[in-house]
Structure formats: C-alpha cells, structure tokens
Design a protein around this nucleic acid. Sequence first.
DNA 1: GAAAGTTTGTGAATGTGAACACAAGTGCAA
DNA 2: TTGCACTTGTGTTCACATTCACAAACTTTC
Lengths: 204, 204
Amino acid sequence: MRYARIPDQTIRRLPLYLRALFLMAEQGQTEVSSKDLSEHVGVHAWQVRKDFSFFGEFGRPGVGYQVSWLTDQIKTILRLDSEKKAVLVGVGNLGAAVLSFSGFNKYNLTIIAAFDADVNKIGQTVGGVEIRDVACLDSVGELNATLAVITVPGQVAQAVVDPLVNVGIRGILNFTSCRLIVPDQIRVTNIDIGMDLASLPYYI
Amino acid sequence: MRYARIPDQTIRRLPLYLRALFLMAEQGQTEVSSKDLSEHVGVHAWQVRKDFSFFGEFGRPGVGYQVSWLTDQIKTILRLDSEKKAVLVGVGNLGAAVLSFSGFNKYNLTIIAAFDADVNKIGQTVGGVEIRDVACLDSVGELNATLAVITVPGQVAQAVVDPLVNVGIRGILNFTSCRLIVPDQIRVTNIDIGMDLASLPYYI
DNA sequence: GAAAGTTTGTGAATGTGAACACAAGTGCAA
DNA sequence: TTGCACTTGTGTTCACATTCACAAACTTTC
C-alpha cells in the first residue's frame, strides 16, 4: 500500500464508502464500479477513484472493484481491522441513543462501558451496556478502551475528559457544545447539533 | 453590508462566534477583541477578522468589537433575526434529546411540533412539545415551519421527508444514515454519528 | 481476433480556504 | 501633542481539495 499524505476530506469519505459496501455485500453484490459507489454515497465517480488512488490501485479497468477486497482495504486504512473499544459518559437521552445504536459492530467498534452520575441509572442496562458510577472513571484504564463518547451536560464535560485522557483514551467524540482542552495527540471530533441547526436558515 | 461571495467555512463558524458572544454578554462583557473571541472558539484571531471582513467593517482598531452590535450583525447574516419554526419527526431517544435541548431559543429557533408513529407516544409532551401522529404530517403546512429535524429510523426517512418537502419545508437536519433525495433548492445537513466515530481510529 | 464499449488511474488545471504580514486606526499616558 | 501599545482590515502567499480530461487496461460481441 502506498503511503502518500492522505487528504482529510478523503478520510472523511472512506466510512461512507464502507457503509455503501456493506449494503452491497448484503445484497450479494460482489463487484462495484466507481460510478455505482458514487451514486450510493452522493459524490462524483472521479472523486471515488481519486480517493482510492491515494492508497494504491484497488480496481480493474473495465470491471470495477471487488466488494469484499475493497471493504478489507478501507477497514485497514481506517484502522478498523482490529476491534476498538469505546466508553460512553452521560446516559441521558442522547447517550441512550448512542448506546442503542446497533450499527457499530460492523466497524469493529464496541461500546464496552457507560458511565453516569445519577444513582438511579447506575446498575441499569441500556443497549446491552451496564451503566456504572461516573466516580469510577479511573477503571477505564483496565478496560483498554481507546475511544470515548461524551454526552454529558456541557458544564461537566471537561471534568470527565481529564480523567479519561489520563487513563489512555486517544480519541473523543464530543457532543457537548464546549471546547475540550486536551493534549495535542488526543483527537477530538465535535458534534454540535445546535450549531448545525443554526446555520440552516442561511441557506434557505 | 457588503455582499461578496461568502466562504462556506466562514458561515459554519458564525454560529460558533454567536455562541461565544452570548456567553460574553451574560458575563456583562460589552466589548471583545478578535483575540478574545478566537480563544473561546478555538480558531486563530486573524481567522475571526478575515471572516468578518467578508461582510464589512464591524470593529474599531485598538478597541475591538461591540458585543451587542456584533451579535445583531451575525444574527442578521445567518437569518436568525426573525423566528424560524422547526418540526421534528421521530421521538426516540435521539428525538427526545433534541426536543429537550433548550438552547435553541437564543437563536430564534423554535421546535413547534413533533411527530411519531408510536400510538403510545402520541399526545404526550417532551421538552414542552406535544407529540402528534406522523400520519398527520400534512398539517405542517398550516404551521408555517421552514425547518425539519429527522430522527426516525433510516428505513422510513425518505417516506417522511417527501411530504415535508411538499408542505414547504426548506431546510432539513438529517440524523439518519440515509442519503435523502430532495429538490435542489432544499438544504440538507447530514449528521451521522456512526461515521464520525468510525473515522476516529484513523487519527489515533 | 478486431472493434466497440467499459472502467480505472492519474497528471494537470482550477478553485477555495488557511495562513501570514503589515499598514492604518484608536486609546492612553506623560 | 507625542510616543507607545494595542487592534482591526485586507492584499498576498501558500496549501489543499475539487474537477477535468484522457491514456491505459479490461470485457464483450461479432
């Protein structure tokens, strides 16, 4: 596999390709053209080919790409070839929604633990994951989790992130509207529902 | 106000500036420098100034920007100066989370109705919004709503979007992982939690 | 096996946004 | 008033991403 510098935007599209490939595999499709794939994802065919070209030659001219092999390649690129463990902090409506989302296993992602401050929730199970006391966040270290999903109220976001960073969490999906302060090598992806809704009126 | 072509990325940052400004106003701050603002939002100071420069001259050299006036300007640019009505379809965990989110009013956004297919939920109230029968989606027309939030299971997403488009919805916040097919003039913003989590391992 | 029809891979052109550097405006203190 | 510290606005440069165009590789058909 070639290792040129990969555009960020390309990486962002790879999971979309992957999802389309899963769908095609389910339908028994074994080969797919860039045109096919592009229509599923909503980009242009040459965009698909250009994206793949950063990694090497995946397809055969006149034929297309082999679904299973392409799937494996993208999984490898995204480091989804081995299981990645995640923890979730804050089991409100939003946290429960994420826990109940069953689509993660395909991507080798598993939420292995959830934490909340509410004593009434501790011990209960949501989406097959038992809720633990947020005071025991340190125990995450023993679980070998590398990812964290933060769905707590904004005021306590930084307070739960600090211990997570200390016990080895490397990537954070932040649903609060607060900017998290973390060391440089920690990756944070912010999802801010309010901001997304607020920018809609401009375009209509 | 000047009307050059505004970069998309600039528009995406404006709501972030707005939120920071709300925070500052609450703390009684009346003036703010680009440096100040940039630290709250997590961008560089020149990025803030450059963004504003697309619209005209908002600040005074040596002093900074007047919080209240800047707030109004950004609201106007984003078309948040008049109330925008939104409906939500699909009151599962995720839908309930959005309904319970109280931060929208600051942006003049109001969720005026929610819809679900579950007869047990219809008639109940979540976040101050009554849940109606999804079969009555047509009634949205009378409500003068322009925005919609889609938090239904992916399989029925397109089925609820089609009638919404017919009754005048112009902007859609789509939480399903399905690509929605809508007329060109309808704006769709996709939020895909699974994809965001799946791209994290690459960076860690 | 030759011709026609597909589809890939990629160099080059175009477009867009980030980053920089600095002139010019403002407030303040002496 | 003068000098200094501070801040804005923006022309320019640079980096990255999209778009195009087309040669090369492959399949199918006759």
